[in-house]
Simulated scan of single mutants.
Amino acid sequence: MRSLGPRMEVAVAMTILGVGAAVVAAMHLTWPEPELPAMAYSVSGGEAGVIGLEPFEIDDVSGGAVELTPGSEGARLVRLSNPNNVDIVVLTLEAQAGQPLDEAQNRVPECPSGVLTVVPMAEPVAIPPAGSVEVEMVVQIAHDVPSACTDAVFPLTYSGRAARA
């Protein structure tokens, strides 16, 4: 079997790790009291066994909801875990807000998902074999938020890219 070479192996590993890391959590936008806890669970898809690396895991471990008012910032605590037996570096981590939901879990079309943004992770982070690190993601809410967004729940979809360290 022909070797791909070191550069191609890194490119393939980065592609697999980038596609494989994704998680969905919920972000609450409430005034004045958050009532529901944030959901957090890990979803790891991808092709295990390619060059021996598995996708890293993303878990929103913030606990309760983050209370946001128009024009404010909050934070989500996110744990990144390395299921591999080698060091990896998470190069990027970002989150996209989905269509907001009301208390009955119905979509709120009058509240656009764009009123909530999550600032991408600023610096790459190294994760040791079978280890984890926690990073903070800054969440921002627009100044001009429609009243339909009061007590809405914003689902967040996290994604990122990693490479062998």
Rank of each mutant, 00 (worst) to 15 (best):
D60K: 09
M27P: 00
P128L: 09
G49Q: 08
E134G: 06
H28E: 13
S3C: 06
R161P: 00
L156T: 01
A165T: 01
S42V: 14
N106Q: 15
W31I: 14
M27D: 04
E134M: 07
S147F: 13
A40N: 10
A75M: 12
T157R: 06
Y158N: 01
E134K: 08
T157E: 06
I51W: 13
L116H: 04
E47G: 13
C149K: 09
I141N: 03
M27T: 01
P155I: 10
L29G: 08
Q105Y: 15
V115P: 00
L116K: 10
A148M: 07
L68Y: 02
P100E: 04
R2K: 04
V10F: 14
T157V: 01
V86A: 13
M137S: 08
L91I: 11
D102C: 00
N84G: 08
R79I: 12
V135P: 04
R7D: 15
E123K: 11
D102W: 02
E33Q: 08
H28T: 13
D59Q: 13
E33V: 14
I141Y: 08
G64K: 12
G114H: 12
V24G: 07
M1Y: 15
G49E: 12
A40K: 10
A97P: 05
R7P: 03
V139K: 01
P128T: 13
A130S: 11
E9C: 06
P124W: 00
V24Y: 06
L29Q: 12
V125K: 12
G71M: 04
E35Q: 14
V119S: 09
F56Y: 10
S62H: 06
N84V: 00
A21E: 05
M121F: 02
E134L: 06
R7H: 13
L4H: 05
A152S: 10
A11E: 07
V78H: 01
V145Q: 04
G20C: 05
P70R: 03
G20K: 09
A40R: 11
L93M: 11
S147G: 11
V61T: 14
A26F: 09
V66H: 02
V119G: 04
D144E: 15
V10E: 15
R2E: 02
A11K: 03
G20M: 08
A104T: 12
A75G: 10
A97R: 04
E47I: 07
P55Q: 13
A165G: 12
M39L: 15
L68M: 12
S72E: 15
C111K: 02
T150Q: 15
P6D: 12
F154P: 00
A26W: 05
L116A: 14
A38F: 08
A163S: 11
N84H: 11
V115C: 02
A13K: 09
